[in-house]
């Protein structure tokens, strides 16, 4: 199986889909050119290099640079999608989506519902998220819970190159607006990725490890940390099941419950803020739907309810660590009334 980076996997997914369907185009800041590159075309491939090479193959009509006005180009994409195109929009940082919430929350997310199913909005909004690169409070947030909150949006948070490609192809083929979030510290992660086109369906969690003592649910970059914590715990005879839901909306709660039937203990690792985040959401659903399966209280491992710090030491302490996951698991495994 060929080994590819997260970035390559996404680029390949975009390329294969653009070859298949001429209605697909990409749009965003520096996806075709590049700031400070003297007008050189395809200088960057977007701020993180994901669209590199698409301009040469598909031309400027289908690989379009935009001004720094997310409100305008996200609105344009929603309109294009309603009119029969299939835009894939790159927003440099998910933190910038705040300036186009009306276009996302109140327009794109509502079209299908308010037009009685007669309009669809096949639009993908790609953006980076996450802490760990010294990008400070305004460029480091894990805002997927905000979008998960809104009915009418689908929200994807891949954790491996394989899933990134398959989920992106699924997102492009989906007829609803999809928020597709890529952790900026994971673009160079490498994994097995087939050359051809394939899909990973929404709403199907990946179960990455089977163990009978505890279920660890994790998203995005936290999946790798959960796996590492599980490997360390296994040395002490504590066996963890690790579940990556892959999409926060729809959410595969069934698979989480299925694993709880065996483990009875739940730790949720989320890089998002603790209030109204995925950890809080899943803890609430499980408490309501599967209370009888629990042998111990649910434990959340999240950052504190505070902005992402810029100072490297503070940023490192802020992000959930392998040690904190391990400690949370030991806490629930050793819990007694």
């Amino acid at each position: 199986m060929p080994r590819k980076s997260f970035r390559q996997a996404l680029n390949e997914g975009l390329r294969l889909e653009m070859r298949r369907d001429p209605r697909i185009f990409v749009m965003g800041e520096d996806v075709a050119g590049g700031k400070g590159a003297s007008g050189e075309q395809d200088a960057w491939g977007g701020a993180f290099g994901v669209t590199k090479g698409l301009l040469a193959e598909f031309g400027p009509e289908r690989v379009r640079d935009t001004p720094i006005t997310e409100s305008a180009f996200v609105g344009a994409a929603a309109g294009a999608a309603m009119a029969g195109m299939r835009p894939v929009v790159e927003i440099m940082f998910v933190d910038f989506m705040g300036v186009c919430f009306d276009q996302i929350f109140n327009q794109a997310a509502k079209f299908r519902y308010m037009f009685g199913g007669k309009a669809v909005t096949p639009m993908v909004l790609r953006a980076t998220f996450g802490a760990g690169t010294g990008s400070a409070s305004q460029h480091s947030q894990a805002l997927y819970p905000l979008f998960t909150h809104i009915p009418g949006l689908k929200v994807v948070v891949p954790s491996t190159p394989y899933d990134a490609k398959g989920l992106l192809i699924e997102a492009i083929r989906d007829d609803d607006p999809v928020i597709f979030l890529e952790h900026k510290a994971m673009y160079d992660d490498v994994g097995d990725v087939p050359d051809g086109a394939y899909v990973v369906p929404f709403g199907e969690a990946a179960v990455l490890r089977d163990g009978g003592d505890v279920t660890i649910v994790a998203f995005g970059r936290m999946v790798g940390r959960a796996m590492e914590a599980a490997a360390r715990l296994a040395r002490d005879g504590i066996e963890a099941t690790v579940v990556d839901p892959r999409t926060t909306s729809p959410l595969d709660i069934d698979t989480i419950i299925e694993t709880l039937e065996e483990t009875g203990r739940l730790v949720i690792v989320d890089e998002a803020y603790p209030r109204c985040g995925m950890a809080a959401d899943i803890a609430g659903i499980i408490a309501e739907e599967a209370f009888g399966l629990l042998k111990a209280p649910i434990r959340k491992v999240t950052p504190p309810h505070a902005p992402v710090p810029y100072a490297p030491e503070l940023e490192a302490a802020y992000i959930p660590s392998v040690e904190r996951i391990e400690a949370a698991v030991r806490g629930v495994v050793g819990w007694s009334r």
Binding site: G166, P194, G196, A197, Y198, V199, P201, A206
Partner: peptide, 11 residues
């Protein structure tokens, strides 16, 4: 999972 991955490839 292996069989599903195979079946989810185009073609």
């Amino acid at each position: 999972d292996g069989v599903l991955r195979m079946k989810r490839q185009d073609g």
